[in-house]
């Protein structure tokens, strides 16, 4: 009985968590594309105006970013200004939760059929690398090692500390701005 009563609360909490993490990731993607050269090397290959979406099926939380040129990403919240070019879709909110709470690596989730790609696979490959890099930036090393396939050797501690702090700072200020506006 307790399980039955707890279920709606848990699934509500899971949904809120996924929504919040999409917000954080969306802002962090924008921030990392401004401060990190390696990320821009990946994203600059995307067409200008390219819209990328992560979504939970069938109509769950969403994250939409746009490549505005020169590798810069712009976070659009959960509304796309036009049809998206690439969509990565989680089959269920539970799978999104596994990935976004860093219990399952993004690449493993792909391998485990938790997600579908709709769009050009080569762009999906690129965006997965960007997400891996983002995860290793914004997470403490211990968790990052669980979340990404391999912890990039080129991120040394000082660079990581400084960049992570800058990203956290940017995310935080953007949050505050959103709340005010």
């Amino acid at each position: 009985m307790i399980v039955k009563r707890l279920q709606p609360m848990m699934s509500h909490a899971r949904r809120s968590y996924v929504e919040l993490m999409f917000q954080v990731m969306g802002r962090a993607l924008q921030a990392i594309s401004e401060v990190d050269e390696a990320t821009r090397n990946e994203t600059c290959e995307l067409p200008e105006g390219f819209l990328f979406e992560m979504q939970v099926m069938p109509n769950g939380p969403k994250l939409i970013v746009e490549h505005t040129g020169n590798g810069k990403l712009l976070f659009h919240g959960d509304e796309a200004p036009r049809p998206v070019d690439l969509s990565i879709q989680f089959k269920h909110i539970a799978h999104a939760f596994l990935v976004l709470s860093f219990q399952e690596k993004t690449s493993v989730a792909f391998a485990n059929d938790r997600m579908l790609v709709d769009g050009d696979v080569s762009y999906a490959v690129r965006m997965t690398r960007v997400l891996n890099r983002l995860e290793s930036f914004i997470l403490p090393r211990l968790i990052a090692e669980r979340a990404v396939k391999e912890y990039p050797a080129s991120i040394k501690l000082p660079e990581k500390l400084i960049s992570a702090a800058r990203i956290y700072l940017k995310v935080a200020t953007q949050f505050v701005e959103t709340v005010r506006a």
């Binding site: 690449s107 792909f110 391998a111 696979v121 080569s122 999906a124 490959v125 690129r126 997965t128 690398r129 891996n132 990404v148 396939k149 391999e150 990039p152």
Partner: peptide, 13 residues
């Protein structure tokens, strides 16, 4: 090769 879909499932980045 870095744009190829199968690279996603390679055990090493």
């Amino acid at each position: 090769a870095l744009d190829d879909g199968s690279i996603m499932f390679n055990p090493r980045e």
